[in-house]
Amino acid sequence: MNGRPAPTSPAEPAAEMAAIPLLQFSEDARFTWANTQAEEWLGLSARHLMKGDFGTQSPVCAHLAEIVEQACDARRTVVALGCVLGPGGPFDLHARWSDETSSVTLSVLPHREPGAKASQAPALGFGRMLAHELKNPLASVRGAAQLIRRESNIDAAAELAQLIIQDVDRITRLANHWSRVGDIRLGERGEVNLNHLAMDAMESIVRADPHARSILKEDFDPSLPPVDGDRDLLLQVVLNLLQNALDAVRDMPDPKIRVETRFDTGPRSRTGANPTPLVLVVRDNGPGIPDALGAGIFTPFVTTKPAGEGLGLAFAARIAALHDGQLDYESEPGRTGFNLRLPVAREETS
């Protein structure tokens, strides 16, 4: 729309480019910014919305204001699913509270029925998502560099240097994956052993955080057939799941994380007509996922972390979908498991 004011709150360029309506509010639930999609959806310009009380602008604005006020009052993310707000609905509303900026970002998404594939969540927040994905390999590089500084054995130092080279190469490949403004695409595909993938992810996490070594346990099926996929992207998915689990158990008196692999032919082991029997599970004994989030946990900008970006699981679900797989979870206090489900490599299937 013509004459749009500059954003008065820290809106990222990726948010302006998002394919869904995004609105931002101050800690007292006062409207501060909207992207073009939100303006078109509401039929109101951001300049007009700033002139008065947001909740009085239209019946739809009144409904949105209620969700935002709840998030501001509780200082937490509030999710409302299946809201009927006029034509094109129903919609899922995600009002994400940020302690860092003392603000609420409201995302408006098409409603997803319970049990829908988590990987159907739209990919947005491209620039911030890329930065998020580079944090884990960079932490691994830093950890290996610190070990080299203390290492007196030349052979051990050379081995650590090789790990740094491998991680830097992976960072370069990840950046190349995202070079088209967040257009995630599979790179070189090949047979991937999920057990080896899990071990490499665990070793990377331990290099970045040595205290994780005593927390991580493994339970692998040694007879698991390979997956046909992009190893770099699949490794990043497992790293995200491990990092989330570490964050969840950090304050637990007896933190535990178990990484499992298995062959599963149960009712959840397919996406449509596509079988996904190969399962990698990251299980932790943290507090669990709040019931209010539900499937919204895979939506960009939705997070249970006070200072989180809510992007890691959205990325992971998208990568699972690109591999004709899916990402789902089961959670209760003291027991949460995220399941990465993938198909068998075609050669094995035949």
Rank of each mutant, 00 (worst) to 15 (best):
F315E: 01
R180F: 10
A345P: 03
L163K: 15
G296P: 01
R4W: 05
E16G: 12
Q326M: 12
P5D: 11
F338I: 08
A71H: 02
A121C: 08
H63D: 13
W33I: 01
L23C: 06
P290Q: 07
I67S: 14
P122W: 05
T105V: 11
I184R: 01
T304C: 09
F91P: 04
T299E: 15
R112I: 02
L280H: 08
V192D: 06
A144W: 00
P343K: 07
D219F: 05
P277V: 07
A11I: 10
A295M: 13
T36E: 15
V206T: 13
P90W: 01
V282C: 05
V181I: 10
P21S: 09
A29I: 04
C83F: 03
W178P: 04
A292Y: 02
P90K: 05
L342G: 06
A71V: 03
R150N: 12
T265Y: 09
P10N: 13
A46L: 00
R47N: 14
V104A: 04
P7H: 15
G337W: 00
D73P: 00
T101D: 12
D251S: 14
F220S: 09
G229D: 03
R258I: 14
Q243R: 11
S223Y: 12
L194M: 13
C61F: 02
L49R: 08
V181Y: 13
G127W: 02
A123F: 10
T271P: 01
L85H: 09
D228V: 00
T56E: 15
E133S: 10
E203Q: 12
T303Q: 01
D200A: 14
S140K: 10
V141L: 04
A175K: 11
L85G: 10
E159S: 14
Q146S: 09
A245W: 01
I205V: 14
